[in-house]
């Protein structure tokens, strides 16, 4: 079991996942958001190659348009 923090909620994964796999698993399939792993934004083109491991913090950031 791998425990990560996904959007500030603890989440168990059965195995290491790529960021792309994790996002699909969590229902984020469209565009229109950014993702930070351990407080650093990750370009969309690398989602399939970034590996999410035990202890990682993953935040899906949705833009705020209000002003």
């Amino acid at each position: 079991m791998q425990i990560i923090l996904f959007n500030n909620v603890s989440l168990s994964m059965e195995r290491e996942l790529t960021l792309a796999e994790l996002l699909v698993q969590q229902g984020y399939e469209e565009n229109g958001f950014a993702v930070a792993v351990n407080q650093t934004f990750v370009p969309r083109s690398t989602y399939a190659s970034v590996c999410i491991r035990e202890g990682d913090k993953v935040d899906v950031i949705v833009p705020m348009q209000g002003g």
Partner: peptide, 22 residues
């Protein structure tokens, strides 16, 4: 940061905003 906007995103008039936040 945001390569594309979300397809649906509420603005302040729809979602509300606490006045001190802006």
């Amino acid at each position: 940061l945001y390569d594309t906007p979300p397809s649906i995103s509420p603005n302040c008039s729809e979602a509300g905003v606490l006045g001190v936040v802006p």
